[in-house]
C-alpha cells in the first residue's frame, strides 16, 4: 500500500473514531435529584412554564407535559384528567435532569450549592436571556421550590404556595385540588 493511501486510511479512521464514540465511554450522570419529591416541583413547572405556547411543546429542549398544557397521553385533554399524571411527571423529570447532565450532577453532588450553574435556574431568574422573560426572582417561593429540590430538601410548601398564588381563578381553579402541600 502506498504511503499516500495509508495517509488517507488513517485520516478516515481518525474521523470515524471522533464521530462515533463507543457507548461505554458516554457520560453517565453521577448524581441525580430525588424523583420521589419531584411531583410538587413538576406541578409548578408545568403550570408556570409548560403552557402550550412555551415549554408545553415536544419540540423544546425543556419540554413539559401536564394538565394545564401538553398532555402525554393522546387520549387526555387539558384538565382531563385534572391533575398531572405520574407518567407526565416522570417525563418531566427526565427532561429537567437531562438538560445539562454534567452540571446537574455537579449541583446535586454539591447539595444544591450555586444552582445558578444551571441554565434553567438562570433563565427563570432572568439572569440570562429568556424569550419568556424573568419567570421568578431569586429567593421567592417558586425559586425556593426548584432550588430546594436540587439541594435534596424539597420545600413542598413553597411549591404549593407559589402555585396557589399563580392560579388565575384562585380556589375555583381546577388545579387547586391538585396542590400537594
Amino acid at each position: 500500500m502506498s504511503p499516500r493511501r495509508v495517509h488517507w486510511l488513517l485520516v478516515a479512521l481518525g474521523v470515524s473514531a471522533c464521530s462515533a464514540p463507543p457507548a461505554d465511554s458516554r457520560y453517565v450522570q453521577t448524581a441525580l435529584p430525588d424523583p420521589a419529591s419531584f411531583p410538587p416541583v413538576a406541578q409548578l413547572l408545568t403550570f408556570r412554564c409548560g403552557t402550550v405556547d412555551c415549554h408545553g411543546s415536544a419540540l423544546r429542549n425543556l419540554r413539559l407535559y401536564g394538565s394545564s398544557g401538553l398532555r402525554l397521553s393522546a387520549s387526555d385533554r387539558p384538565f382531563v384528567p385534572v391533575c398531572d399524571t405520574q407518567a407526565e411527571i416522570d417525563q418531566d423529570y427526565l427532561s429537567v435532569v437531562g438538560l445539562e447532565p454534567a452540571t446537574m450532577s455537579a449541583v446535586v453532588a454539591d447539595h444544591g450549592a450555586s444552582p445558578e450553574r444551571l441554565t434553567m435556574v438562570r433563565k427563570a431568574r432572568g439572569a440570562e436571556s429568556h424569550k419568556g422573560g424573568p419567570i421568578w426572582a431569586q429567593g421567592d417561593a417558586s425559586d425556593v421550590c426548584l432550588t430546594s429540590w436540587l439541594a435534596g430538601q424539597t420545600s413542598a410548601s413553597s411549591c404549593a404556595n407559589a402555585l396557589a398564588a399563580l392560579l388565575p381563578t384562585g380556589a375555583s381553579d381546577p388545579l387547586s385540588q391538585c396542590i400537594t402541600p
Binding site: 398544557g69 387539558p78 381563578t169 381553579d173
Partner: peptide, 26 residues
Amino acid sequence: AAMNTLIGEQGACGGCHVDPAGSSSP
C-alpha cells in the same frame, strides 16, 4: 368564562386553541 391557565407568550388565541381539541389543544 375565565381561562384557567396562563398565556406565556402567544398573543394569538388561535395559535394554541386549534381544532380539533386534543392532547395539545383545548
